[in-house]
Amino acid sequence: MIKARKRLWIVLASAGVLVCAAVLAGFALRDAMTFFHSPAMVAENPPPPGQRVRVGGLVVDGSVARPATGGADFTVTDTLADIRITYAGSLPDLFREGQGIVAEGAFDETGLFIASRVLAKHDEAYMPPEVAAALERARVEGAGLPAAGHDAYREGYGRSGS
């Protein structure tokens, strides 16, 4: 009897903590989840301004403007549509034209994407999976992969092949 009671409080206490953790996680997940939108998805069905999302694609050649005051503006594409992105921080070292990147932030009223974070990978042959998938969809839908992006993607391994 006493043993059973001792068991009970352990079980109750554990269940209490686990339920709290689950509720905490559930709410946090709902608030902190950010959806990935490819440029084509944005063109079709733009997310409301101010909503935190991730976008990504290949950085369009020649689209990068680096104002003398700092920050950078650039355009990413999935070959179907483009997104203009502005970023006030310091671009990652691996950021370059033709490379696949992911940016996190929100659209403003004019459709400009204001990024709070820009991710490029340490490994320069890397393509973020979301970007790769978006490009694959674009390819299937009939748009050609821009040559520049493709070449830049291969640059890293170009020399080992010879």
């Binding site: 997940l29 608030d31 902190a32 989840m33 950010t34 959806f35 990935f36 996190e104 999976p129």
Partner: peptide
């Protein structure tokens, strides 16, 4: 749809 769960979570 692809999502990501970041530091805020």
């Amino acid at each position: 749809a692809p999502v990501s769960v970041g530091p805020p979570y």
